[in-house]
């Protein structure tokens, strides 16, 4: 069997598995009672030849100890990198984040477009992300370990998820924190 064929079969199998699997809750707690919740996980639709895709999340630390996002992965991308976008003198720069993203206790760190901040970059997506699909993502924290979520796929140039009311702690008063090293 050619590599091409086996890839195609793997893709079809993945799509079938995705279509038949019930969606996971937007935030999950690993055994051991993690204090990290990942909300508002979303990505943008991409074409079949896209070499990268994006992942945006809000990370809430309900605990009393600082934590740190150290890595991320997805079965639907070759690798997931943490990138920081900066704007200096009108020039856009994108660089790998060194040392992960700190999540202070009681804080929410938002990885979102336009913040001049951090986003997750899915390198080598295995297939096109179509609107309405769900894409699994696992975030690994220094203390909390792995937290798995499913990202909604939004429009290609979306600034925010279309359905903002996911029912995850809107309107409370935890302080927001900027992503940082």
């Amino acid at each position: 069997m050619t590599l091409h064929m086996s890839r195609r079969i793997a893709t079809v199998a993945l799509l079938v598995a995705l279509a038949s699997a019930p969606p996971l809750p937007a935030a999950s707690q690993p055994p051991g009672g993690s204090t990290i919740e990942v909300e508002r996980a979303w990505t943008r639709s991409t074409g079949p030849t896209a070499q990268t895709a994006v992942a945006y999340v809000a990370i809430r630390n309900r605990g009393t100890a600082p934590d740190r996002l150290v890595s991320a992965s997805s079965p639907e991308a070759r690798v997931v990198e943490m990138h920081e976008t900066t704007m200096e003198g009108g020039v856009m720069r994108m660089r790998p984040v060194q040392g992960g993203v700190a999540v202070p206790p009681g804080g929410v760190v938002r990885l979102e477009p336009d913040g001049g901040g951090v986003h997750l970059m899915l390198v080598g997506p295995r297939h096109a992300f179509g609107r309405g699909e769900r894409v699994p993502l696992t975030l690994t924290f220094e203390r909390a370990g792995n937290v798995s979520v499913e990202m909604t796929v939004e429009a290609a140039g979306a600034r925010r998820p279309a359905a903002e009311h996911g029912g995850h702690g809107h309107g409370d008063h935890t302080r927001d924190a900027r992503p940082g090293g």
Binding site: R44, T52, M94, D114, H119, M121, L122, A156, G157
Partner: peptide, 11 residues
């Protein structure tokens, strides 16, 4: 290959 700022601008 720019997944963040470029789609935001085109959106």
């Amino acid at each position: 290959h720019c997944p963040d700022v470029c789609p935001t601008a085109l959106g």
